[in-house]
């Protein structure tokens, strides 16, 4: 059977009438988009249980996202405007000196080899977070989760909008994984997602939410962006 013949035979197979219920689709999609109040309550409880070794947040220096390098407890190792300098106006939109920081977070997979993505809509402040590729013996702690909107139609990370790095300091810790708990893939259920104003990065593209994570991995504290929300 030649390629053309196979193509022709496949295309000759007719389809049935669609018979789809668009109202049911819309209703289901609306439910997914609606805030999950009960889940938020569970997240608050869950976070308290999951935190094994919480960090002292006031000791955390502003996170510089450039290159995803480690930031010590004592201070930022990289140049860049201190996060406190990037203020917000009354409408919650940051001033124009912030985009360089907010739009420069590296991809977590480039920095750590780990992939991270939301498993559901984080818009309501609660989401499941999947981490894959976490090697055995890897000590990983999620210090905070926020949302970065990233271009959904590109192979490389392009941040469309993201919160200022300073905002991550206020993110509630969501959980911890360590060498005993993590081999391969781990899902943090109903994690609290920080609702912080995002800075527009000037990219005109369809966007999807990706996790913006403040993590400590093998002693390094970095702010990184995961994969856009995959449709599965």
């Amino acid at each position: 059977m030649s390629d053309d013949e196979l193509r022709r035979r496949l295309r000759d197979v007719p389809g049935p009438r669609a018979g789809l219920d668009v109202q049911a689709v819309l209703a289901g999609a609306r439910r997914t988009r609606r805030p999950k109040v009960a889940a938020m309550t569970a997240a608050t409880t869950g976070a308290a249980v999951l935190i094994v070794a919480p960090f002292v947040v006031p000791a955390l220096s502003p996170i510089a996202p450039t290159g995803g390098a480690a930031v010590s407890d004592q201070g930022a190792e990289h140049a860049g405007a201190p996060a406190q300098e990037s203020g917000e106006d009354a409408a919650g939109v940051s001033e124009p000196d912030s985009p360089a920081l907010a739009c420069g977070y590296p991809a977590i997979v480039d920095e750590t080899g780990i992939r991270a993505s939301f498993l559901d809509d984080p818009a309501d402040g609660v989401a499941d977070l999947e981490l894959s590729g976490v090697g055995a013996g890897t000590a990983l702690q999620i210090l905070g989760v926020a949302v970065a909107q990233v271009a959904a139609d590109r192979d490389v990370l392009a941040i469309v909008a993201a919160p200022d790095p300073a905002a991550l300091e206020g993110a509630p810790p969501v959980g911890r994984s360590d060498e005993d708990a993590v081999v391969g893939t781990r899902v943090l259920r109903d994690g609290a997602v920080l609702d912080a104003p995002a800075i527009d990065c000037g990219i005109d593209a369809p966007s999807a939410p990706a996790p913006l994570l403040l993590v400590e991995l093998e002693g390094r504290r970095i702010a990184v962006v995961g994969d856009p929300w995959a449709v599965r």
Partner: peptide, 16 residues
């Protein structure tokens, strides 16, 4: 298809 539509439009955010 119905499931896929619901899941997709429950997730897609802007500009699609």
């Amino acid at each position: 298809v119905q499931d896929a539509l619901t899941a997709t439009f429950g997730r897609l955010r802007n500009g699609f």
